[in-house]
Design a protein around this nucleic acid. Sequence first.
DNA 1: GGAACTTGGTCAAGCTGCTTGACCATATGG
DNA 2: CCATATGGTCAAGCAGCTTGACCAAGTTCC
Lengths: 148, 148
Amino acid sequence: MQNSDAMALSAALLAAAGDLVQRIHDGVTARGFTDLRPAHGFAFARLAPDGATVTDLAVHLGVTKQAASQLVDEIVRKGYAERRPHPEDARARLIVLTGRGRACTRAAEEAAAEVVGGWAELLGEGEVRALRERLARIAPYGPIRPAW
Amino acid sequence: MQNSDAMALSAALLAAAGDLVQRIHDGVTARGFTDLRPAHGFAFARLAPDGATVTDLAVHLGVTKQAASQLVDEIVRKGYAERRPHPEDARARLIVLTGRGRACTRAAEEAAAEVVGGWAELLGEGEVRALRERLARIAPYGPIRPAW
DNA sequence: GGAACTTGGTCAAGCTGCTTGACCATATGG
DNA sequence: CCATATGGTCAAGCAGCTTGACCAAGTTCC
């Protein structure tokens, strides 16, 4: 394995990831959610199942809780989420998606499915499935939000 | 192809990319280049072959030329590159890596080779090669610098 | 040749998303 | 219950980027 091969693979991986994020973001925008940035999508992914606290979100995103709190301010102000009292801890607040937030999450899933569907046409479904398995084995605990 | 499958593949791809960047950066730091961030690596990749102008670099990184110029200021100040008069255009300056800059580039290549070598142990060399080919087909013109 | 326009680069000012630091309210454990 | 830990916010500052203005050198066209 030459160093140049490693660099070629690295470049291909980063190009694919960058392209994916860009296309999903474009798809979300095209579906009418024009006031969001890709970073919000990473937050929605954590909030979607059952909501989360600001601190949970901060850990998930790899930022301080102050930064996470600001991001929550923004998506609350834009109507994608709301702060509720936490059912088990009076200090905490549970951040949950609104209907609009869930609709946006579905839009992101549709956009992702479109992109991946395009890959399936290029490579075939089996190859795409194999790609997913191999990537999952490479970085099972990789950061959700990239570090650069 | 379910939407959830597309999301799983997307998450795996982003996790792998984030993990890769983090590990390369750690490897570069461990080799003694402690005053750089991952973004600098993307610039070095463009400068390494024959140098580049500030405008070239800006296009490559997807930022304004003012931002690229600031980044060049920084790597020049830290001794990784220097500005030379452009041999064919008196308006332009050719930014070229210094010896230290080339040494850092080699360190990044070594670090990348280490990470990819780890993948080869997990998946086998053939699988890694297949991964590279498929990723290259997915996003042959993907952005060098991701958009989020 | 020279006027009009384009292109490479920098200077300056401003914004945004993040950080650190301080602080309050509630939980938790001796 | 008192001491400490934890969830959250407010405030100030910083780093990296943007827009806008400008100059020097190249290019086009008469």
